[in-house]
Design a protein around this nucleic acid. Structure first.
Lengths: 370, 370
DNA sequence: AGCCGGACGGAAAGCGCTTGCTACGGGGCA
DNA sequence: TGCCCCGTAGCAAGCGCTTTCCGTCCGGCT
């Protein structure tokens, strides 16, 4: 049926051990022999069986990248950057070892749809495949399955898989994996967090300095860490200026998509027709907010200022161009990729914070009457 | 080190065969025994070794989804729909068989960056892993590696992997896999093509009917099938109205991104300041075109009409909202997913064409002076 | 000329799981 | 009461590859 190592060996007139060595190039083989083997491989169109190899060698060249939503550019950018880095030949201890040209590994991105169960399922599947590494991106859901996920991650890491959290808070420092076991067995779970709190705070401060006093907030899904952090940043800014009470009730929750922004904006407007600015959960949501505003005959930023978050590529094309916080998504993804490949390490404690940068464009302006 | 089937068997006081059967649920096991085994699995936190399983059973639960660019919503939507369908429990011949809950398989999306070499690399990797299926999305590059890819695909299919082409032209009907072999060995390569030609033709006809006579065209990368097809549709429309000559030179090529659209539009404008409409390669490109137009002080659609293609989510938010051709991306992705899972079949010949639908919005209008 | 070590190639023992086949015990039927 | 068959469980043979030992051969050194 399918050709195996033995077939190649037979055709080349050598033992299968030799063929294996030629293919893996980690043992001296005479040029003469090598050539014959390679020709046999060609002739037979031989393709190694990755499973057999992984089983025998106890290594794998799969790296999982879990994202909340592939269709969302936020994750798309992150994933694509990480992916490129993972596929790239390793400079570290991986010279030519893996099947991929140059020692790179196969990055597989898994779409969880933001559901913890799906996350768990993929994590299990990846564990099954004995993946070389896993990158978990996007905010975590706070609640029920959190522990199950943390647990699974810890076990993955303990079993030798490199785990990187990107754009998600670090794992609670567990009580050190059931004592007894191997103290050297696993590697740490590395974290690359985004400074959501800081970014959100900058945004709101910017609005306040422009003169806004009644600022609405369209937040993300209630139970997600990212939502909470951005909200905290927002509130910190309000508190700093003694505005906490005034804007206290002006928060509406929704998903990270356009229609949620649309709906939430109308809700906010109904609740408080006098607001002069809206802080959106992210750029996509901001688009929805702007659309809703426009439908009500309100102009941005003349009547209401709007801010986004992330600075996705389309933000600059929106009308008006969005004031937002730029997250170095591409760079963060690449870094996560390097971390998971063991080609770079996090400074200390395995946790790094990625800062955002306030980008002021046309969607914010001073309120009409102060 | 890691716990194996044998460990579980020992703890449950049964043979490893029994444990395997409990886990796979395809052989009668007494409830009593099953329970004991499951408890042992729990206690030991046992995770099957996917590689060993795949090796022994000669099956895999990996399905590859190759896309040109994860960061592009076009592919994101396709991939996410396919993914959902693949993860879903199979209704067909896959009840509970695979490791994933409900018989779903692990969809791994691979980012090729549109490079044929990367495509080949991933295909090889997937072949190595003996993937259960592969979905190839996006336009193919016409040239050098085409044959190599077609070849690899044919071999993949012949070796039992289900192959689906989505949004890409069917494979040339090869001279039937080297005769001799198994006539029943592999399954056919299924194709789900988009009607790029038809869509593009509708768009251009729409413009012509509005009264446009000098229509520019910003096409995609020269060597891609999608580019060629859309261009052909465009030209067919022009020819139908005897406009082929007039607009003959008004084509500029570029990538499928915003900045290419921007650059190409300026180029076109320089070449022919009198044009009244521009057909863009897709929605993203259209955004760039509009930005360029605006910079030149031209209004859309008053001075110049612009059309996109695909109808990505943001198209309705653009100002002006884009006239475009809607491709049922989500549905197509889902269908591709079903095809690759063997849960659905293509009508006849293994090739299905997905039609686009003209969506008229605000970016097109009659030219100012006719 | 005899020895020794290095460079290569082969034999074979697994890696962890699936599965065909066999073994065994008990209930239903003749 | 004896026999057959069904419901279960175990044995053991692989699946295709890696890798540890060894054995062999040859060149160079003493």
């Amino acid at each position: 049926m399918t050709t195996t190592l033995a077939d190649v060996a037979a055709r080349a007139g050598v033992s299968s051990a030799t063929v294996s060595r030629v293919l893996n190039g980690n043992y001296p083989v005479a040029d003469h022999t090598r050539e014959r083997v390679l020709r046999a491989v060609e002739d037979l169109e031989y393709v190694v069986n990755g499973n057999a190899r992984a089983l025998a060698a106890a290594t794998s060249d799969l790296v999982g990248v879990l994202v909340n939503d592939v269709a969302d550019p936020f994750f798309g950018i992150l994933a694509s950057a990480a992916q490129a880095e993972i596929a790239r030949g390793g400079d570290a201890d991986e010279q030519g070892r893996a099947g991929a040209p140059g020692g790179g590994k196969l990055a597989v991105v898994c779409n969880t749809g933001g559901s913890p169960e799906a996350e768990l399922t993929y994590l299990t599947l990846l564990h099954r495949q004995r993946a070389a590494g896993v990158i978990l991106t996007g905010s975590a859901v706070e609640g029920s399955d959190t522990d199950a996920i943390a647990d699974r991650l810890a076990r993955l890491a303990a079993s030798g898989t490199r785990v990187v959290l990107c754009g998600r808070p670090p794992l609670p420092a567990g009580p050190f994996e059931e004592g007894a076991g191997e103290p050297e067995g696993g590697n740490p779970v590395m974290t690359l967090g985004f400074d959501n709190r800081g970014g959100a705070e900058q945004l709101t401060r910017h609005l306040i300095r422009l003169g806004h006093r009644r600022i609405g907030c369209v937040a993300g899904p209630v139970d997600r860490t990212t939502t909470r952090h951005r909200l905290e940043g927002h509130r910190n800014a309000l508190a700093a200026y003694g505005l906490a009470r005034e804007c206290g009730g002006l928060t509406a929750y929704g998903y990270y998509d356009r229609s949620s922004g649309h709906r939430a904006a109308r809700e906010l407007l109904d609740r408080c027709p006098g607001l002069t600015a809206i802080v959106a959960a992210n750029d996509t949501v901001a688009l929805g907010v702007i659309a809703a505003l426009r439908e009500r005959g309100l102009q941005v930023p003349r009547d209401v200022s709007v801010t986004g978050f992330d600075d996705l590529p389309f933000s600059v094309d929106a009308t008006p161009a969005l004031t937002t916080v730029r997250l170095p998504l591409h760079e963060a993804g690449a870094r996560a990729g390097r971390l998971v490949m063991g080609r770079e390490t996090t400074p200390g404690g395995g946790v790094a914070l990625v800062e955002g940068e306030l980008v002021i464009r046309e969607s914010t302006a001073p309120p009409r009457e102060s």
